[in-house]
Every structure is written in structure tokens, then in C-alpha cells.
Design a protein around this nucleic acid. Structure first.
Lengths: 360, 360
DNA sequence: GCCCGTTTGGCAATCGATTGCCAAGAATTG
DNA sequence: CAATTCTTGGCAATCGATTGCCAAACGGGC
């Protein structure tokens, strides 16, 4: 049973070629133990290993050292346009340190999340990057008890996880200040799921800044989405309409909700931005090509991914224990979906719809 | 130096617990050698390993068997909306067989592609799924000479790769038949990069069906994009306009090119679908929410990913040598970006623009 | 010329699972 | 009852790299 023909060279092969023991080769190639090898031998070994294209066998390395240079990346659903840029950033960041990513989708389902983590664990991943965390998730804490982990784009209430998030609060401040400056005084909201930090934080900030700027409604008009997608955006928009309270603008917890809301309003002949101003959050791909182009908050998704990668690598390599939290600044992008409230237009979205229905 | 406290149980642990040799445990747990273990011992072993939560150490398994149950997935850029659904399909398909995916982006760059393959190889990947291949790529053939590989969504001229692609030809036939039925007789094209099979095939089919249906221009009016993105779509649309030949419709090689074209035409006050009908390809996310909603070809991205995963697993596990090629059917989705040529409108996009310029 | 300290490099155990080979005991047969 | 076959399960080598420990070899000081 001979060795497969084209199999990659091993330490032993290089050792045979140079004429020394494998352990010497190992030490020569490992920066931490270089001192134990004479310079000229060193040179010979380096040349030989380069010539033969030697690369250490990852399995053997992992088996011996328990370090795989592999990070598990867990996201709800890669087809949600928020995640690709994050993942891209993660991969670029990991690649800088010669790490690779194993990816898995959970669809936001805790059972699936448990399954994928258990699939990854025996593969010896060094750590996890979680883009899927809910605010409370004790199971997750148990599952990852012995593993470095950082959350990206979201946070969890477990203080042991490091995190990279966007400045949601500042985003809402900018959005509401912008709407206020356009004259809007009755601003409704389509909030995201309150089980994840983004949904929760954006909603809290909305409430706070509405009050500070006095631009909310007396009895707040908010509809809560059960997911960050267009369908829920449509449903919530309908819900706002049936409340029959006048509003002139709607702050949505993300772009996809905004897209759904615009569609639903349009069905009721309430046009954006003519009859109602709508804002999103994220500045996802194509947000500028929609009709109308979306006024939204641009967040640094790719950067967040890169930072998360750097963070996890640092934790893994330096056994950093103190969790760190990075907050990335955001930017307001004003496009066509928001418009100044003109004096002539006293009618509001909430009312126009009802009047129309009475007529028909 | 004691063993780390919470480290996962190994075969040895289970063996000690049941009171037999590790090799017996191994055989009992491995379906292929079950016959060599008595039923009741079998039962005891299964119970014990389940109770302790035993999972084989992937590194040891890989080291010994050279099988990692890991597939490398190489794509140009995950932030291009075509790829997420493919990747999703791949992961779901792989998960069914207990495989995982390692992901890497190449940005279509051959050097990066070589680098990522060389990063993956020592990790013992069992095979590759390539979404990034160019039509000709001899380097790739060399890099992957000893590795199972399938291409998805694209093909390469190397016949040894299995592939999963969409029926591009039928897509173009449907698009052109649709436009012809709307009365269009001068149909221009924005073709994709001819270095990849999708760009090349779609263009060839466009040429062929234009002729068959006699809906092309006498001297064909085609602009070639250097990449499948909005910017190139804009550039190509401009290029079509300067040619100063009348056309009433533009067939674009994918949705992003179409989006760019619509933007560029609009800049010239040529409205879609009023002045020109435009079609895309892929039916990417949000294609239905654009203005105008895009008439396009829906392809089964997720299915393609799943099929590619099934294919590579089959090749890996059964050492299938005969390459297989799967072609998935496509579907025409008619939306707002195409419109019947009304008799009243004799004016064409190519001309209207010039007249306008003369006036101004 | 002897002793001691420092390099330099080899030996061998180890990580965890797989598997060919062998042996003991059980079962079958004549 | 003896001989033979079958079942069951243990032994030990192996995959490739790492690393603690030990032993030459070498140089310098007295």
C-alpha cells in the first residue's frame, strides 16, 4: 500500500531531503522555536520546504495543538441582503490572519442554531462569530460556554460576548432630526422584532427621540414586525392605517420593512414621498435604485465584519478574556423617500386613506 | 498536565466506561463494521456514547482517513445578489449529508482564486464547488487536478468538471419571444463578459433567436459589459445611445445590468417602459420592487446550489468519475419593464434621444 | 588538559480514530 | 468427543505535527 502519488509533502519528506530529524524541521519552520536551529541549517530547510511546496497538514496540527484556524460564522439567513457584506468583511478579516470561515444559516431558529453549533464543534473551530443572536438566549450561552465568541451587528444580554455593532441610537437620532427638520410632527414607526437587540434598540431610541424632539404622536403609533422582511413591512403598514390616527412619516426599523411599507401604502393610493415620508435603516444594496430611492441610515457592514474577525482572532490567539465592545458610527443618507411637509398639505397619510375609503 | 476539564469525550472514554477496547467502540459506531459486534454490546455502546455526547474528533478522523466532510466553496463576491441564494442552497444540500462549507471570495481574480484554493487544500477539503470559473482557466485545472470539483451557475471548458447551470438558451428564447409578441422588432442587447459562460451563452442565444424571430437590428447593436454590475449597465446603455441606431427594446445579460441601463436611459429622459422595454436575467431579490419592476428570467438559484452540493457529495463518496451536467429550467417573469409597442409610438429610444439633444 | 556551559539536534510520546491481523471462545459438524 | 469454522474483540501500527527531555558536540576558561 504505497502512498498516493500526488499527496502533499510532509515534514518527514523534507526531513529526509535535508537529512535531519523531523523535529528539527518542525522547529525551524515554527517562528517560536527558531532559535534552536543554526542559521545555515535554517536556510537549507527553508529552501527545501519552499521548493517542495510544503504546507503543514491542518488535521495533524489541529489534532496536536487543538487549533484549527477556523471560525464558525452563524447567521440567520444569507439571502437577507444585510448579511452578505458582513460575511464578506469577516472573510477578508479572517484571511488576513490565515483563518477561514465555516458558514451556517439558522433561519433564526434556536433548534437549528444548536444543531449547527454542534456540527461545528467537533470540527475543532477556534471560535464563533454570531450574527444571529437574540437578546436573551441562555441555551446559546451553554452551547458556547467553552468557546470564544463575538457577536456582530447584534448583541446579547450575556456580558461575556464581545460585540461589534452600529450606533443604532445615533442613527435614530439622525433620522428623527431629519424628519423634524422637514416639518414632520406626527411620526409613526414600524419597529423590528423586540427579541433582537437591533429591533429593541432602534425602537427605544425612536421613543426617546420622539419625545426629545416632540415629533411623536400623543398616543404612540407603532406597529411591531415579527421579522425584518418586506411582507412584515406590508402587514405593519396596514396595521398603522387601521389605527386611523394621522401621521405624516413612518420610521422603519430597516430597509426591507420600509420597502414593504411603501408597497402597502401604494396599494392604498398613499404615495411616498408625496403623502408620507418613509425611512429605512442599513442602506442595503439597491436601496438607491428603488422607487422612491430610500432615505436611510448607512451602516458599515463590511467594516463590522472585519472588526468582528479581528476581535475573534485576537481573543483566540491572545486568550484575551476581557470582552470588548465596538460601536461603529453611522451616516444619514437622504434620498427620495422623505420630503418636506408643505403648508398646503394638511392632509395626512393616516387620514387620507380613510377619507378615500369613505368615498368609495 | 491533566486533560482540559470540559473537553469532549473520546473513544477512549467510552471504551473505559463500557469496559471494552477502543477499537470495539469504533467498530460499533461505524455502520460499515457493525457486523463484528454483538447486538447487546452494541446496544450498551450506543447508549453510553449517546449519554456522554460522544462525537468523533474530526481532526483525528481526517488525519486517518483523509476525509474531512468539508467542501470549499469559491465565489467571485458574496455581495453580488446572485450568490447568496446559491450559497444557501449549497449549505442546505451539504448539511443533509453532514458536510460543511468553507467559503471564499475571489473578486473574479485568478491570483486570489489560486490563493484561496491553496489555503483550503491543506485543510483537507474533500472537494470544491466553483461559482467563479471563467470559460478558459488552465491554471484552475492544474490547481484542482487531484480534487473533485463541480461548477455551479457557470461552466468551464474543462470537461472533467461536473456542472449545474440554468437553461440560458431557453431563457433568451423566452425573453425574445416575449418582446417579439409585444411587437418589438429592433432589439438591442447589453451582453455580459464573454469570458464567463453565462455571458457568452446568453449572447450567443440572443444572436441566434434574434435571427430566428427576425427581431434583431440589421447591423446588430450590442454593447459588451466588462462586469455584471450596475455601473457597467450604465456605461453600456450610454454606448448604445451614441451608436445612434433606433431600437425599442434592450435585452440585458442580467438584472444588475438592466438596473444600470434603466438609470442611464432615465438620465437621458428615455423612460422604461414608455420609451424602451428592458429585460434582465436572474430575478434577483428586489427585482419586483424596483421602478419599474423588472421583466426577467427567474432561475432556480437555491435549487442549483442544492444540486451542486448533492453532486459533489456523490462524487466524493462514490468516487464517481463520469462528469455529470445538470441544466435547470427557467421561467419568464413579466413585470413592468416591458410594454407592447403601440402603433402611435413610431419613435424609438435610439432616435428620441438624439432628437432631444438636437433640440437642446 | 580538564571541566563546565551552551548550542544543536534527535528520540519518543502524544493528540484521537481507524483497521489489518490475530487469538480466544463459541458454535457447528462428522 | 474431536476437529473445524465463525464470532467477537483486543493489539498495535498508522495518519502528520508538536514538544519535553536528553545527549552529543563544541567552545572557552582555568
Amino acid at each position: 500500500m504505497r502512498k498516493a502519488k500526488r499527496s502533499r509533502p510532509t515534514l518527514k519528506d523534507i526531513a529526509r531531503e535535508v537529512g535531519v530529524h523531523v523535529s528539527t524541521i518542525s522547529r525551524a519552520l515554527n517562528p517560536r522555536s527558531t532559535h534552536a536551529v543554526s542559521p545555515d541549517l535554517m536556510e537549507k530547510i527553508k529552501r527545501a520546504s519552499r521548493r517542495r511546496g510544503y504546507a503543514p497538514n491542518a488535521a495533524a496540527y489541529l489534532l496536536k495543538t487543538n487549533r484549527s484556524r477556523t471560525i464558525g460564522v452563524i447567521i440567520p439567513d444569507i439571502t437577507d441582503p444585510v448579511f452578505p457584506p458582513i460575511i464578506r468583511g469577516i472573510e477578508d478579516g479572517l484571511a488576513r490572519h490565515n483563518y477561514v470561515a465555516i458558514l451556517a444559516n439558522t433561519d433564526g431558529d434556536a433548534r437549528r442554531q444548536a444543531r449547527v453549533i454542534e456540527t461545528m464543534r467537533p470540527r475543532g473551530i477556534d471560535g464563533l462569530i454570531l450574527a444571529s443572536v437574540a437578546r436573551h438566549d441562555k441555551e446559546l450561552s451553554a452551547l458556547t460556554a467553552d468557546m470564544p465568541a463575538v457577536t456582530v451587528s447584534r448583541r446579547t444580554d450575556n456580558p461575556r460576548f464581545s460585540s461589534v455593532v452600529h450606533d443604532e441610537d445615533d442613527g435614530l437620532r439622525r433620522v428623527l432630526t431629519h424628519l423634524a427638520s422637514l416639518g414632520h410632527r406626527r411620526i409613526a414607526a414600524i419597529a423590528g422584532p423586540q427579541t433582537v437587540s437591533t429591533g429593541y434598540n432602534r425602537y427605544s431610541s425612536y421613543v426617546r427621540y420622539c419625545e426629545e424632539l416632540s415629533v411623536g404622536l400623543k398616543q404612540p403609533l407603532v406597529s411591531f414586525a415579527r421579522a425584518f422582511n418586506e411582507m412584515e413591512g406590508e402587514r405593519c403598514a396596514e396595521e398603522l392605517l387601521v389605527a386611523d390616527k394621522p401621521f405624516t412619516a413612518v420610521v422603519c426599523a430597516n430597509d426591507r420593512l420600509a420597502v414593504g411599507a411603501i408597497t402597502a401604502f401604494r396599494r392604498h393610493k398613499i404615495e411616498c414621498p408625496g403623502d408620507v415620508s418613509i425611512t429605512g435603516f442599513n442602506d442595503m444594496a439597491l436601496a438607491d435604485r428603488l422607487s422612491p430611492p430610500l432615505t436611510t441610515i448607512r451602516v458599515q457592514h463590511t467594516k463590522a465584519g472585519v472588526e468582528a474577525a479581528e476581535l475573534i482572532v485576537d481573543i483566540v490567539e491572545n486568550a484575551t478574556s476581557e470582552p470588548r465592545h465596538i460601536v461603529l458610527p453611522v451616516e444619514l443618507i437622504v434620498r427620495g423617500s422623505t420630503r418636506a411637509l408643505t403648508d398646503g398639505v394638511s392632509e395626512t397619510a393616516g387620514h387620507s386613506r380613510n377619507r378615500r375609503e369613505e368615498l368609495s
